[in-house]
Nucleic acid binder design. Structure first.
Lengths: 339, 339
DNA sequence: TTGAAAGCGGTACCAC
DNA sequence: GTGGTACCGCTTTCAA
């Protein structure tokens, strides 16, 4: 390994002090033009790169942001992370991503790593924060962390003292119900997700609370499942045992919807004639899998922008800032026959 | 924000030197038991966390590993990253993930960030390294980086002086051809991917070079596409314009295969009766989307393990170490009717 | 404009 | 066993 060159060497070679080199690199303070040129040349020549660790130590501020997601191999988190990283990168931030597996010990390790790494902010996407059973104690742990390092929660958690940025659900639920109603689906079931997950509860509530005014009746019994395609497969198998199938199924997300769709094909059903299917998130695949999944879309770009904005302005923001990112209904082939 | 407590404060409070506290924290050297207990109590009480930045500065070694992927929202990279992170985390590493978008400037920024952050190693997944047209100049830049920080390439690049870990393709290609032959598919087309991508070229070559001995003829013309479901949609639309369809299509990956399958459904085709479909990678979805995609599977766990092993033993490894991770054929409904 | 020097929070060598 | 202290690479104040 070749030795890394430091600011001291550059300074020596240029016959100036490290202070001057520092000024040149960071464009702070005035420096004689000849010296500037000489130093810049040397930097070029020796391919000098400032040691960000030293910089971070001295300024007690790094340009790193910590991300905790339950599973990055879930396309929803991947998409959101991806968009966020694109924006954050342009602002000079580097993101550290860790998978918590929603596991207490893992998450705790990650938090410590982030604190020790002096990250600018910690962004929490789902996981234990999304668990309605998470104890007061846990929430106050998060608040403790928030005292040292700004925490941004991507889940709407009541009474949690940190910045929260999450998806708006009400308007789009109404749009969805209106759409289903117009298409003539009156007997509708919900499927997938677990009843201890905040985001899931919220989605269900918005549907349940508003269905009546659109003349839609929602089946009381919800077949639960995890949030994967496989979950959709299994839940749909269960659903198919019903005496009378609903006219439409609202799935907890697009992956589950994909699984439901797939299982429907397996049983030679025609979509949406035999049954209509709806998802949430608007993953890439939802658009391209036949016949296209009708979905309540996450506005990934807006969401990511809000996150990065929060990271940048975190010091000026109130601990209890809540930001709801707009969502929208996207109608595709699983609810509406192509013309 | 509450002030972070440092080793100096702990030392003062315990009436010992920082050296002693350091010894206790790191379990290096002997320390009187009373003092140890006192210090440990203080650490607990004040929730002291050593500043990893300072540690990294002083040891000129961090526990961070840099990952560069073209798109984390590609499920293949997401899956591989996920598995790697799980293992790496257990070994005490934190991974930094950046999306290069295969863009020269972005990638360059990322590399600088990684170098400045003093990462233990840099893992390259695809991207520009996978571009067969990447200039000698680019490769020697990578080798330059490799002199400062160990680089691990997940692409098999001839004449590149760094550790390389990639998927074995030959055996599984033969297995695939054997399977297709046994199922009676003689007229086979390849679809998807671009001809400037090393991994793609390799996959195609292995098929082309071995088809004959299994009595299979591969169509000369390859319809290209990007590596997404949409790419599969579009390529399949093109394919359907053929006078005579092939009996089977080998797609460049599972996403493309999903797109092809979807387009086939759209055209009321029956799979695999009308046409058989094969993919690569074995994504989660391939198993659960009806009727299940036959695929050449990446062994994610083994692959990830090899990567983490390399990170740990990088200093002892030869610059030119090449490791081929085994792949395997998984037969599903797109080539074989369910019994 | 410029440089000397004091840290940032640890680690580790050396002396006691 | 233990403490003093130089040092990791950089920024920033202060004085010149």
């Amino acid at each position: 390994m070749s030795e890394k060159i430091t600011i001291v060497e550059i300074a020596k070679l240029a016959n100036v002090s490290t202070a001057t080199v520092s000024r040149i690199i960071n464009n702070t303070g005035k420096v004689n033009n000849d010296k500037r040129k000489k130093v810049l040349d040397l930097i070029e020549q020796y391919d000098y790169k400032p040691n960000l660790i030293a910089k971070a130590l001295q300024s007690s501020k790094s340009n790193t942001v910590g991300f905790i997601v339950p599973h990055i191999n879930s396309p929803y988190y991947a998409q959101l992370f991806f968009e966020t990283e694109l924006i954050a990168q342009k602002q000079g931030y580097t993101l550290m991503l860790c998978n918590s597996e929603s596991d207490k010990r893992l998450e705790s390790n990650i938090l410590n790593a982030f604190i020790s790494a002096n990250v600018r902010a910690i962004v929490f996407m789902g996981g234990r924060l999304d668990d309605v059973e998470s104890k007061k104690k846990y929430l106050s742990e998060i608040e403790e962390v928030n005292k040292k390092i700004p925490v941004i929660s991507c889940v709407d958690v009541p009474n949690l003292g940190c910045i929260q940025i999450y998806q708006e659900q009400q308007k789009s639920s109404n749009k969805l119900l209106k759409h289903l109603s117009e298409m003539g689906y009156r007997d509708v079931a919900m499927l997938g997700g677990y009843s201890n997950v905040r985001t899931t509860i919220k989605r269900r509530e918005e549907i349940l609370d508003n269905a009546e005014k659109y003349g839609i009746s929602i089946r009381r019994e919800i077949i639960e499942s995890d949030y994967s395609v496989e979950g959709g497969n299994i839940a749909m198998q269960e659903m198919l045992k019903c005496d009378k199938l609903p006219q439409a199924i609202i799935c907890i997300n697009d992956l589950v919807a994909t699984g439901v769709l797939s299982e429907a094909y397996k049983n030679n059903m025609s979509i949406p004639k035999d049954i209509a299917i709806v998802g949430y998130d608007n993953l890439d695949i939802s658009q391209f899998i036949y016949p296209g999944i009708t979905t309540i879309a996450c506005n990934y770009k807006e969401y990511s922008k809000a996150i990065v904005d929060a990271i940048q302005n975190v010091d000026a923001m109130d601990y209890n800032t809540k930001i709801a990112v707009q969502t929208d209904l996207i109608v595709r082939g699983t609810t509406q026959l192509e013309k």
